[in-house]
Protein backbone atom coordinates (compact mmCIF):
# COMPACT_ATOMS: atom_id res chain seq x y z
CA UNK A 1 0.00 0.00 0.00
CA UNK A 2 1.43 3.44 -0.92
CA UNK A 3 1.85 5.78 2.03
CA UNK A 4 -0.65 8.65 2.19
CA UNK A 5 -0.57 11.56 4.64
CA UNK A 6 -3.75 13.62 4.91
CA UNK A 7 -4.57 16.84 6.77
CA UNK A 8 -7.99 18.56 6.89
CA UNK A 9 -8.18 21.81 8.91
CA UNK A 10 -10.72 24.63 9.08
CA UNK A 11 -9.56 28.00 10.41
CA UNK A 12 -11.20 31.38 11.10
CA UNK A 13 -10.67 34.04 8.41
CA UNK A 14 -7.64 35.53 10.23
CA UNK A 15 -4.00 35.93 9.21
CA UNK A 16 -2.82 35.00 12.72
CA UNK A 17 -3.22 31.34 11.69
CA UNK A 18 -0.76 31.58 8.77
CA UNK A 19 2.29 30.61 10.81
CA UNK A 20 0.51 27.65 12.39
CA UNK A 21 -0.63 26.20 9.06
CA UNK A 22 2.80 26.85 7.51
CA UNK A 23 4.46 24.88 10.32
CA UNK A 24 2.00 22.01 9.85
CA UNK A 25 2.95 21.97 6.14
CA UNK A 26 6.66 21.83 7.01
CA UNK A 27 6.10 19.01 9.53
CA UNK A 28 4.09 17.08 6.94
CA UNK A 29 7.03 17.18 4.50
CA UNK A 30 9.36 15.88 7.19
CA UNK A 31 6.97 12.98 7.80
CA UNK A 32 7.09 11.84 4.14
CA UNK A 33 8.90 8.52 4.27
CA UNK A 34 10.51 8.07 0.90
CA UNK A 35 11.03 11.56 -0.47
CA UNK A 36 14.56 11.72 -1.88
CA UNK A 37 14.74 15.39 -2.92
CA UNK A 38 15.85 18.32 -0.76
CA UNK A 39 13.41 18.05 2.13
CA UNK A 40 14.23 21.51 3.56
CA UNK A 41 13.45 23.18 0.23
CA UNK A 42 10.19 21.25 -0.22
CA UNK A 43 9.16 22.09 3.37
CA UNK A 44 9.82 25.79 2.76
CA UNK A 45 7.90 25.71 -0.51
CA UNK A 46 4.88 24.00 1.05
CA UNK A 47 4.91 26.56 3.89
CA UNK A 48 5.07 29.31 1.28
CA UNK A 49 2.35 27.94 -1.02
CA UNK A 50 0.00 27.41 1.94
CA UNK A 51 0.73 30.92 3.24
CA UNK A 52 0.10 32.52 -0.17
CA UNK A 53 -3.07 30.52 -0.88
CA UNK A 54 -4.58 31.14 2.57
CA UNK A 55 -3.66 34.85 2.51
CA UNK A 56 -5.37 35.12 -0.87
CA UNK A 57 -8.46 33.37 0.49
CA UNK A 58 -8.61 35.53 3.67
CA UNK A 59 -7.86 38.95 2.21
CA UNK A 60 -9.17 38.76 -1.37
CA UNK A 61 -11.75 35.96 -1.70
CA UNK A 62 -13.27 36.28 1.79
CA UNK A 63 -12.49 40.04 1.89
CA UNK A 64 -11.32 39.90 5.55
CA UNK A 65 -14.88 39.00 6.67
CA UNK A 66 -14.49 37.66 10.26
CA UNK A 67 -17.61 35.51 9.89
CA UNK A 68 -16.14 33.46 7.02
CA UNK A 69 -13.87 30.46 7.30
CA UNK A 70 -11.11 28.75 5.33
CA UNK A 71 -10.79 24.98 4.88
CA UNK A 72 -7.40 23.51 3.99
CA UNK A 73 -6.94 19.95 2.74
CA UNK A 74 -3.47 18.53 2.14
CA UNK A 75 -2.86 15.06 0.75
CA UNK A 76 0.61 13.67 0.14
CA UNK A 77 1.44 10.34 -1.47
CA UNK A 78 4.80 9.08 -2.69
CA UNK A 79 4.07 10.63 -6.09
CA UNK A 80 2.12 13.84 -5.50
CA UNK A 81 1.43 16.63 -3.06
CA UNK A 82 -2.12 17.97 -3.37
CA UNK A 83 -3.44 21.10 -1.62
CA UNK A 84 -7.00 22.44 -1.66
CA UNK A 85 -7.92 25.78 -0.07
CA UNK A 86 -11.66 26.53 0.12
CA UNK A 87 -13.00 30.08 0.54
CA UNK A 88 -16.55 31.41 0.98
CA UNK A 89 -16.17 34.51 -1.22
CA UNK A 90 -17.32 35.58 -4.66
CA UNK A 91 -14.28 34.11 -6.44
CA UNK A 92 -11.77 35.68 -8.83
CA UNK A 93 -10.37 35.11 -12.29
CA UNK A 94 -7.09 33.22 -11.88
CA UNK A 95 -6.12 33.89 -15.51
CA UNK A 96 -5.93 37.64 -14.79
CA UNK A 97 -3.26 37.15 -12.10
CA UNK A 98 -0.03 37.06 -14.12
CA UNK A 99 3.38 38.44 -13.12
CA UNK A 100 3.86 39.60 -16.70
CA UNK A 101 1.24 42.27 -16.03
CA UNK A 102 3.18 43.54 -13.02
CA UNK A 103 5.79 46.22 -12.61
CA UNK A 104 8.78 44.98 -10.57
CA UNK A 105 8.04 47.58 -7.91
CA UNK A 106 4.32 46.82 -7.51
CA UNK A 107 3.61 46.07 -3.84
CA UNK A 108 0.92 43.39 -4.42
CA UNK A 109 0.13 40.57 -6.82
CA UNK A 110 3.06 38.19 -6.40
CA UNK A 111 1.22 35.50 -4.42
CA UNK A 112 -0.45 33.64 -7.29
CA UNK A 113 2.73 33.96 -9.38
CA UNK A 114 4.72 32.28 -6.59
CA UNK A 115 2.15 29.45 -6.38
CA UNK A 116 2.29 28.94 -10.16
CA UNK A 117 6.10 28.80 -10.10
CA UNK A 118 6.27 26.23 -7.31
CA UNK A 119 3.34 23.95 -8.18
CA UNK A 120 2.78 21.86 -11.32
CA UNK A 121 -0.99 22.36 -11.58
CA UNK A 122 -3.06 25.29 -10.29
CA UNK A 123 -6.82 25.55 -10.74
CA UNK A 124 -9.52 27.73 -9.15
CA UNK A 125 -13.17 26.74 -9.47
CA UNK A 126 -16.61 26.93 -7.87
CA UNK A 127 -17.39 24.02 -5.52
CA UNK A 128 -20.97 23.96 -4.20
CA UNK A 129 -21.39 27.31 -2.40
CA UNK A 130 -17.65 27.85 -2.02
CA UNK A 131 -14.55 28.25 -4.24
CA UNK A 132 -11.52 26.01 -4.17
CA UNK A 133 -7.93 26.73 -5.16
CA UNK A 134 -6.44 23.35 -6.13
CA UNK A 135 -2.67 22.92 -6.38
CA UNK A 136 -0.72 19.79 -7.24
CA UNK A 137 3.03 19.15 -7.18
CA UNK A 138 4.67 16.00 -8.52
CA UNK A 139 7.23 14.67 -6.06
CA UNK A 140 8.92 12.25 -8.51
Amino acid sequence: MPETVEVDITIPNQTRYLGLIGRIGEDLVHSLGRYTGDREVLAYHLNLVLTEAITNAICHANENDPNKRIQIKISATEETLSIKVFDEGEGFDLAKRQLGDMCETDECGRGIHIIRRLMDQVNYRRSDKRNVLEMVKKLY
Binding site: T51, E52, T55, E107, R110, I114
Partner: peptide
Protein backbone atom coordinates in the same frame (compact mmCIF):
# COMPACT_ATOMS: atom_id res chain seq x y z
CA UNK B 1 13.67 32.50 8.17
CA UNK B 2 10.49 32.94 6.10
CA UNK B 3 9.16 35.73 3.91
CA UNK B 4 6.07 35.65 1.68
CA UNK B 5 4.76 38.02 -1.00
CA UNK B 6 3.22 40.31 1.67
CA UNK B 7 6.61 40.67 3.38
CA UNK B 8 8.26 41.38 0.04
CA UNK B 9 5.50 43.92 -0.71
CA UNK B 10 6.25 45.76 2.56
CA UNK B 11 9.95 45.96 1.65
CA UNK B 12 9.04 47.25 -1.85
CA UNK B 13 6.83 49.88 -0.21
CA UNK B 14 9.77 51.00 1.96
CA UNK B 15 12.09 50.99 -1.04
CA UNK B 16 9.74 53.21 -3.05
Amino acid sequence: RFVDSSGLGALVSGFK
